[in-house]
Design a protein around this nucleic acid. Structure first.
Lengths: 163, 163
DNA sequence: TATTGTTATACTCTATAACTATA
DNA sequence: TATAGTTATAGAGTATAACAATA
């Protein structure tokens, strides 16, 4: 007739996997709230970053990197084009594809995004001393490499909005 | 006429916040895939855990912990009750509220869930040596505490399914 | 015939709010 | 009248698949 309070596996609430999942959701939500002040969703911020890392990609490539179907990418890119943040140019070699690039306005916004990201980083890691902060980054990066995650891009913010 | 490749802020792709967000989404998705083999969603797994940690809570309390509105909790709990995993008992002191508890079948499933969680933990952290693994848990837990996250519960898997 | 971008549509998921029963 | 649980419904968001243009 023992109680059941102790029966839960410690890997659950105490493990790194759970903490990563919990913290990841928290951090992603905070980032969503911050970029909302620039009138951006996390996915839009991701597109700005991807375009400066490697401009001139096709919509299909970009859609896949962001983890969305090509059909969804169209209205997504429409909005950013209407705001003057990105440009669509027909590729002369293959006139089916667009090459997407940042406008000057898009690059300005990306710079402001960098400031936001830096403040966010500091807010998230304020519990850690500088050397611990670096230690954490090192450990996380090794896991990310081993898990074969693409550096700098992820589609995990697929469903996040501000709020 | 410089290129724009170097203009991105390093806090973006290299920072702990980005890595936490990226890894968190990855780890949560992997967990969703694993528990799908037990015919559970992450939210359902979360409810099983919550009920063994502190049985007898009302539906409203549980709904809030899982980050869902009470109206959504009803069909959510219905499914688990129909599968014989949880029980609804009217509270004699206040007959408006249900007290939710795990059935024996629910506790069996929770035990299998513990095995799954342990395997998941090992798979996620296989890049790390045992002492590094503990180091990571320590750093993450300090951040989680400082960010005031409730230990053992999070609503961040709100929108995850297997796939 | 295959591929890019696009559009249309149908579907899932969700939250809001109205309803009932107990207090 | 206030609160727990429930139900109904309307809206947002999504993916699937059909379509047009180009290769």
């Amino acid at each position: 007739m023992s109680t059941n309070r102790e029966k839960e596996s410690p890997a659950f609430r105490g493990g790194a996997a759970f903490l990563l999942s919990q913290l990841g959701a928290h951090v992603a939500q905070q980032f969503a709230d911050r970029v909302a002040e620039l009138d951006l969703t996390p996915a839009q911020a991701g597109l700005l970053r991807m375009l400066v890392q490697a401009p001139g990609r096709s919509q299909r490539e970009l859609a896949e990197m962001l983890g969305m179907p090509p059909s969804r990418f169209v209205p997504f890119a429409d909005g950013m084009q209407e705001r003057g943040l990105i440009e669509r140019r027909r590729n002369p070699d293959d006139r089916r594809v667009y090459s997407l690039t940042l406008t000057d306005k898009g690059m300005e916004l990306l710079a402001r995004l960098g400031t936001v990201a830096k403040a966010h980083e500091e807010q998230v890691c304020q519990a850690l001393a500088p050397d611990e902060h670096q230690q954490l980054i090192g450990l996380l990066r090794r896991i990310a490499d081993q898990q074969q995650l693409t550096p700098g891009v992820h589609g995990g913010y697929r469903r996040l909005r501000s709020g």
